[in-house]
Design a protein around this nucleic acid. Structure first.
Length: 276
DNA sequence: GTCTATGTTTGCGG
DNA sequence: TCCGCAAACATAGA
């Protein structure tokens, strides 16, 4: 579920919440498989008494650096969220891991589908080492994108979703970027013209920046939506051009948006703007 | 009630 | 290398 803009929104809110340097006084694991490294039973002992020195994002991972060394990494996968609540709050259904802080706040991993994972590691590269560049970072340039695409025979959409090529794109923002650049998701990556690669490069950065500016995309109506740590919803769902807009007119040419499946993922396109 | 889709990643077999 | 599929799960929506 959370892609780069949603994860960045969470990290921004965690930063504002001033959790840095607040000692961890308790840790409880209610769903063992949420802890992906070591034994879940040893998890509390490894974090209690420690505190975070910084909180950051890499791809779709949230990173917590411990003062004194070591990292706690979190991937929210499909349905994971973080809740920051006061310690007195009754534990809600699906809150599977709880970190308690000395100032009576608790950070809780809420994850109905239980795919989210916490990693406790000495070396973050163990988990993040294979990720591609940050699409909003300095190493992600149009030249890099052109080089990557020119050697690949895969379809452009599954390639953009590959975290080892670019870190952080997911289904929503790939559909939006391809529409913005006027590229069909089934184009062979190496077949894009130089102009199309440049357009795609700009589109990727544009849709991600817009997603962050809007504090993420919160789809649907129920409590399953994306929201940040204080349950604040994002507003980017009001600015989508094709994603889940099936049947609605294309904002550029009014052709109805169509839904298809590409690489087993629901895909939304304007067949007029994104011809094959 | 039943069926299907779901924003992610990994690992398998071909 | 690449692709398709299944699995890890629960819930919303048709």
């Amino acid at each position: 579920m959370p892609e780069l803009p949603e994860v960045q929104t969470i990290v921004n809110d965690l930063t504002k919440a001033r959790l840095i340097n607040v000692p961890i006084t308790g840790a409880h694991v209610f769903w063992q498989r949420s802890i992906a490294t070591g034994s879940p039973r040893s998890f509390p002992g490894q974090v209690i008494g420690r505190n975070f020195g910084s909180i950051w994002r890499r791809g779709k991972y949230i990173g917590f650096d411990f003062n004194g060394g070591g990292h706690l990494l979190l991937h929210l996968r499909m349905s994971g969220r973080l809740h920051l609540v006061s310690a007195g709050m009754r534990r809600a259904k699906h809150e599977h891991v709880v970190l308690s802080f000395q100032d009576d706040r608790e950070l809780r991993l809420y994850d109905p589908r239980k795919f989210g994972r916490l990693y406790l590691v000495k070396d973050a590269d163990l988990i993040l080492g294979r990720l591609g560049p940050e699409p909003l970072g300095r190493t992600f340039t149009a030249v890099y994108l052109k080089k990557i695409l020119s050697s690949r025979k895969r379809l452009i959409k599954p390639l953009l979703l590959d975290q080892n090529v670019i870190a952080g794109l997911g289904n929503i923002y790939v559909d939006e970027a391809l529409w913005d650049a006027g590229i069909h998701p089934c184009r062979i990556a190496s077949s894009l013209s130089s102009d199309q690669v440049h357009g795609l490069y700009r589109a990727i950065r544009k849709v991600l920046k817009q997603g962050i500016a809007n504090a993420g995309t919160s789809l649907g109506t129920g409590k399953g939506n994306f929201h940040s740590i204080t349950r604040q919803m994002g507003s980017n769902q009001n600015h989508l051009h094709v994603y889940r807009q099936t049947g609605l007119p294309c904002p550029r040419c009014k052709t109805p948006i169509e839904r298809l499946v590409v690489g087993q993922r629901g895909t939304h396109i304007c067949i007029n703007c994104q011809s094959l």
